[in-house]
């Protein structure tokens, strides 16, 4: 089985370890690919290569207003294999769900006591093919009452996503190599928060893999809105 973790922070963004160190740990934990997250700026450099693992270039957009998000998404779309949005603000969460250029909405519950999403957002996310992220670091690094709030928010988001059949991905969001967990462990947290085991495993394997595959086809010109070129 192929496991993907699309949210890995390295020294290129806010992380402590280099891409090489993270790739080495990911190989040890059995990942087929990891997403190296960089915050979106106008100049985007090439990712370093790593042997034996697929490095996915993920760009994270951090916006404070919905309009800024839409502008930045237009600029960043062609430069990223996976386009992520730094969630937390309800207006930004909703704009991200309603924007079909966005692939993943990260931690919609960040810094909030509620879950940051409602039925309108999640339905829009389903229509626009936006995946909602379950952030493992939020659970790992919080404790006592804060962890309870986080867990209940995640549970609520999963319930909504199940109702509207919205895609979910689980990621470790590790900022150093000790924050990473193997794919099956990430799936177990999705499982105990309410997803069936098969669906929970898909959130770390086929769902992120398909997002990466589709976007690579789009970037290479083999896929456009509603049209796909088949090889003969």
């Amino acid at each position: 089985m192929t496991f993907y973790d699309l949210n890995i922070q390295t020294s290129l963004s806010i992380g402590e370890n280099t891409v090489e160190e993270m790739a080495q740990m990911a190989r040890h934990l059995g990942f087929s690919g990891i997403g190296i997250v960089r915050y979106f700026t106008s100049e985007a450099s090439e990712l370093p290569k790593a042997e034996g693992i697929d490095l996915v270039s993920c760009l994270m957009i951090k916006a404070s207003k919905a309009q800024d998000l839409n502008d930045l998404a237009k600029k960043a779309r062609d430069k990223a294999e996976v386009l992520m949005v730094h969630g937390g603000n309800y207006d930004v969460n909703r704009a991200a769900c309603e924007n079909s250029m966005v692939d993943v909405l990260c931690h919609p519950e960040l810094g909030r006591k509620d879950s940051g999403l409602d039925h309108i957002c999640v339905r829009a996310a389903h229509d626009n093919n936006v995946a909602i992220e379950l952030n493992f670091r939020e659970v790992l690094e919080s404790y006592k009452r804060n962890r309870i709030y986080t867990l209940s928010s995640l549970k609520k988001n999963i319930e909504l996503c199940k109702k509207y059949n919205t895609k979910i991905i689980t990621s470790s969001a590790a900022i150093n190599k000790w924050g990473m967990r193997s794919g099956r462990e990430l799936a177990s947290i999705a499982n105990i928060l309410g997803l069936e085991l098969g669906k929970a495993i898909e959130t770390v394997s086929t769902v992120p893999e398909n997002i990466v595959k589709r976007n690579r086809e789009k970037l290479s010109g083999a896929r456009m809105e509603g049209v796909k070129i088949e090889d003969k």
Binding site: F136, L140, S188
Partner: peptide, 10 residues
């Protein structure tokens, strides 16, 4: 098993 997995991963 899944609960224990989560405990170990935390």
């Amino acid at each position: 098993v899944e609960n224990v997995r989560t405990v170990l991963s935390l």
